[in-house]
Design a protein around this nucleic acid. Sequence first.
DNA 1: ATTAATGTTCAGAA
DNA 2: TTTCTGAACATTAA
Length: 304
Amino acid sequence: MPELPEVETMVRGIRAHVTHRPIGDLVACANRCKPINIKPTLARLRKRVVGKTFQAVRRLGKRVILDLSDGSSLAIEPRMTGLVLLADPPDVEHLRLRWDFDGPGQYASFWFWDRRGLGTVTLFDQAALKARFALGTFGRDALEMTADHWVESCHKSAREIKVLLLDQKTVAGIGNLYASEILHRAGIHPGVPAKSLTPDALERLTQSVQFVLNKAIEYEGSTLGDGTYRNALNQSGRYQNEHRVYMRAGEMCSVCGDEEIVRIVQAQRSTFYCPMCQPESKGSGRKSGSDRRGFKPSNRKTGR
DNA sequence: ATTAATGTTCAGAA
DNA sequence: TTTCTGAACATTAA
């Protein structure tokens, strides 16, 4: 499920191969899959894209943005299982769209592949893109968040910190997997209200977001058990080997060695955490000492 | 054979 | 205003 590190890996993977090349055609792949959700229609998008070039490829939250030479931009949103590929798709059935380039180049085309078909491709003109991703309508990028920004985002909110982390309007790029990993490294219990976090906890959160996301980018993202996520050349990421809590319910915490990782459900999504490293009490002060022992997990489900 | 679970986003309701 | 719920989708585990 592509989150910030996976989408960043996609962007870096295709950038050199898709920019400044004339687009010869855009077609729906010939298989029984629907060509996913396209705005406007495929036919109209095709007319708007053919003959142009991509001037730049960048990331906005969890979307791949391709800036066209006429000032408009294409936003590819992988959602759960979408991939951009230069070659070697995981399978041919779930290829959805293909862009063909004219002229020389290492790869003649690139694809949007999506097993579940929740992904979207949307064309924005310059003004519409600006409006859609303006601060306030869309959150600041997770890698741009300073401690002051976190204070501003958290100090009024009654929501659980894990749920707030997932809100793309509050902060862009964090998804279910990295939310659990980030909070574990920060020593913050996922269920505490955002506004209860102390300045110290928010400082740790700031650092943890930077550390975890940058490390995950360095490792080219996480390819989970189902093997869905792949880079542009259909290679697995390597950050899954570094996960400390995600999908590790019932395992001993590798950091404290004293407690099993627990799975709970928040906002209909799985959360994983360590009751020892992430105490529930006030402001999640990790070093407060008084809550080192005697803590009871707030939820008893430990299955995976 | 049916049902639940999986994760992201958005529309619409509370 | 803020927060919550359900739908969309494909595949697999129970």
